[in-house]
Design a protein around this nucleic acid. Sequence first.
DNA 1: GTTTGTCGCGGGCAATTTGCCCGACCTTTC
DNA 2: GAAAGGTCGGGCAAATTGCCCGCGACAAAC
Lengths: 213, 213
Amino acid sequence: MKDYSVIIVDDHPVVREGYRRLIDLQPGLKIAGEAEDARAAYAQFRALRPDVVVMDVTLPGASGIEAIRHIRQYDDSARIVVFTMHLSAAFALKAVQAGAMGYITKSSDPRLLVEAIFGALRGQTVISPDVIEAIARDRISGIGTGLTDLSPRQTEILCLLARGWSAERIAGELSISPKTVRNNHYQIKSILGLETDAQLVWFALETGLLPAI
Amino acid sequence: MKDYSVIIVDDHPVVREGYRRLIDLQPGLKIAGEAEDARAAYAQFRALRPDVVVMDVTLPGASGIEAIRHIRQYDDSARIVVFTMHLSAAFALKAVQAGAMGYITKSSDPRLLVEAIFGALRGQTVISPDVIEAIARDRISGIGTGLTDLSPRQTEILCLLARGWSAERIAGELSISPKTVRNNHYQIKSILGLETDAQLVWFALETGLLPAI
DNA sequence: GTTTGTCGCGGGCAATTTGCCCGACCTTTC
DNA sequence: GAAAGGTCGGGCAAATTGCCCGCGACAAAC
């Protein structure tokens, strides 16, 4: 019986090493390839046609969510399992909407990832318990993370604003007008119902958009 | 010749597996223990007295920075190398101030971590090139010194501003005019050399004026 | 093909806030 | 009692915010 082939997508080399010990040593699975960003993941998928893709959602350049969509567009039977540090209901829902067959946090027991891979092979979607709980909690409170209400661009700008960057610096970084940054700044605060810029930082910290020190 | 002992601190099991392949297979190094949060790291350090600690800065509960301080307070000859995904000048400076002997990003070539470990054993501080560049670009020097330059009243107002309170609310709380709050707001940013209100929050977090999440 | 929707981008303009000056009170300290 | 420093606020030009608008791109729906 042939092993199922897996490709792994993560931008941190050390994490890919960790995958190897988890997956490659697992009977029935073998790692066919690696990629460190969304474009390479897509190229690898087309070249190797693996049975399963295991990928992070935060990647350099295009987001993992987009990569999922892209791969599923090319082959809608692709099995993709998201494996990420983000314990986020918003990310998980987006990933599943985009076509992921699993969402496991890196702080989970590693065996859960293996289970999710075999689950995906059987056509089951496995979500790690901590994420399920986060989804349930968000639903109950009704508030949600708020992050889902922001467009990708707004999220990006929020992230830079919360870092303490000036509108001018952000404008330079993104090659847009400072006025656009200011408009987005206002829109973001308006959508999230925030009063001050300091609250904006706290929002970014609480949603995990930025790491707390 | 005895191998140097290393303990690894990271909250993601898969990352710890990656460390094992990197460090344990390296001639001259062996992994003596693992920890997944700051408290466990401290306990492991006291129990095992390793030659080097490799740790992330974002950990559940207490921050890695605090863990560094805590360990160095217990043993000021402790060699600690930070290995993290965060390409952040502020984190790196904070870590080195706290006593870290190295700061390497997870997206660096893994061999750099090994080099940093051996560097730390020789008493050298190794910072990964991407972080050096970030420090040069951000030029956020000056942060981390200023608290002593603020009067008690200014510190109090800074604390409330950083919490996200509006000038009016602070004025009500302290029974002074909103105008005075705004003047203080300006003075504080001026004294600390800050540009935006978001930086003000980070200042409060980094000086420990406010607890992070 | 067209409509409808959303998204990213920015102009415009009044209202507000900031940046930076000022002086008037306290205390403390020499 | 004079000097020094903290606290409190007024004033005013310059800058920013809050909120409106329209434009073009692009995807989905009719």
